[in-house]
Amino acid sequence: MNLPNLITIGRLLLAPLLILVLTLWQADTARWWALGIFLLAALTDWLDGYLARRLNQITDLGKILDPLVDKILILAALLVLVQLGDVPAWSVFIILLREMFIASWRVNQTQVQGANIWGKLKTVGQILAVALLLAPLAPVWDIPILMIYGGAIALTVISGLIYIKESYSIPPIIPDTINNT
């Protein structure tokens, strides 16, 4: 077990703490603590990737574990936000469906792939949206936050479709080898 993977496991342990803070402590202070825990976890997501590349410790376990822990953390926060009435359950279902589908797809691949740029954008979008949803901000922020959350949902769907397309290597409908002579 290398340092980047240990950091990833540490991030996994922050998910239950986040749930406990949000469900057992009903105050704006709890939301700020939950936001701090969530942002710490997001920072460790960047840190473990940086260290894995810098120390040349990229492993197949890390390629599987890192995105899985990201999904657990995002979904843990979103499920509590559903319970609190801050986000609709259908929106979390869309995210959960995509994540489960892609995770099950990856299990059947012969070679472990890291996330592509769309997967990384999806994760950043989800982190930003969840962070804003956790923060006890004034009502004037409600519409912009929901728009950012909607964008994160859109990135979730788009990145999933792109991942499947790239995995299948779907050829273009019109061949580009047509002779113009």
Rank of each mutant, 00 (worst) to 15 (best):
I117L: 15
I19C: 05
G150V: 00
L84I: 05
W25K: 06
L134V: 01
L155Q: 03
M1Y: 14
D66V: 10
L51K: 12
A103T: 14
K120G: 10
T177L: 06
T123C: 13
L39C: 15
A89G: 00
D176K: 05
D142P: 01
L24W: 14
D66M: 12
Q26Y: 11
F93K: 07
G114E: 08
L132M: 12
T177K: 03
G119P: 09
I153M: 01
I162M: 11
F38R: 01
Q126H: 07
Q113K: 12
N179P: 00
P67Y: 10
L81S: 02
L6Y: 11
T123V: 13
I127D: 04
M1D: 11
I127T: 10
W32S: 06
L75G: 01
M147F: 06
P16T: 05
I9N: 05
I174H: 04
V157K: 01
W32Q: 03
R11W: 09
Q109I: 11
A135G: 05
D60C: 08
W90F: 08
L81C: 04
P67V: 07
T23G: 13
I170N: 08
D176N: 09
N108F: 09
S104M: 15
E166L: 15
V112K: 08
I94T: 03
I178C: 02
V140H: 11
L55E: 15
R98I: 02
A27Q: 10
P67M: 07
L55V: 02
V124Q: 06
I164F: 13
L73A: 07
N116G: 13
L22D: 01
Y168G: 14
G160P: 06
I94Q: 00
Q126S: 06
I37Q: 04
V124C: 14
W118F: 14
A129F: 01
L79C: 10
K120H: 11
D60F: 08
L43D: 08
F38P: 00
